[in-house]
């Protein structure tokens, strides 16, 4: 819109300038050649100047200045594009570093877990072994105690027999009579029961 206004204004200006050139007063008679408007060459430069200026304006605005602005825009575009690429590369690199760190962290965690698992397994195995050994020892102790008890019982049984025989022999020697086996057994039983208590 503005460009149109500029063009219209320029056209009007050109017309105005041409009019001025056509109606310029020619009454100046001074020493300065510039003020000698009677000289057709003085006003002629205005006409020629208007044409040359218009051509200059058109060539500049249509061809030359767009060329310059295109180069400047290309450069700005290229620089911003390169910056974009660099930014993307940095982003990728950052992501790669983050991934690497994550992988490292994961590997460390996994190793820690494996170590923990191995330790747990070892501890459990040790515990189980300990438990087994304890159980076997307990069993052997129980066996031994049972054997001791049996031996003791057998020894005590044999003691009663010895006591019985001894009592019978003593009584026979003292009294000369063979005691009643039933009564001897009863008395020995009673004495051993009192002793045991």
């Amino acid at each position: 819109m503005m460009t149109k206004t500029v063009r219209a204004g320029l056209l009007m200006s050109a017309c105005g300038v041409s009019l001025l050139a056509a109606t310029a007063p020619g009454a100046y008679a001074t020493g300065m050649p510039q003020l000698d408007f009677a000289n057709p060459l003085v006003t002629g430069q205005v006409m020629w100047g208007a044409v040359i200026f218009l051509v200059f304006y058109l060539v500049l605005s249509r061809a030359m200045l767009p060329r310059v602005s295109r180069v400047l825009e290309d450069r700005a575009h290229r620089i911003s594009g390169d910056l974009e690429v660099a930014r993307a590369a940095k982003h990728d690199a950052d992501r790669a570093v983050a991934e690497l760190q994550q992988a490292r962290k994961d590997a460390m965690a996994e190793a820690q877990a494996n170590l923990q698992a191995a330790l747990d397994e070892e501890r459990q195995a040790a515990e189980k072994q300990m438990h087994d050994i304890n159980a076997r020892l307990d069993m052997e102790i129980a066996d031994a105690e049972a054997r001791v008890a049996a031996e003791k019982a057998r020894a005590l049984g044999a003691l009663r027999e010895i006591a019985h025989d001894t009592t019978q022999a003593l009584v026979q020697r003292l009294t000369g009579l063979a005691p009643d086996a039933q009564l001897v057994a009863q008395k020995v039983e009673g004495a051993s029961a009192r002793r045991a208590v």
């Binding site: 320029l10 105005g16 001025l20 050139a21 510039q34 430069q45 100047g49």
Partner: peptide, 10 residues
Amino acid sequence: IAVTFALALM
């Protein structure tokens, strides 16, 4: 002055 005045008038 004719040239400069024409430019200024424009």
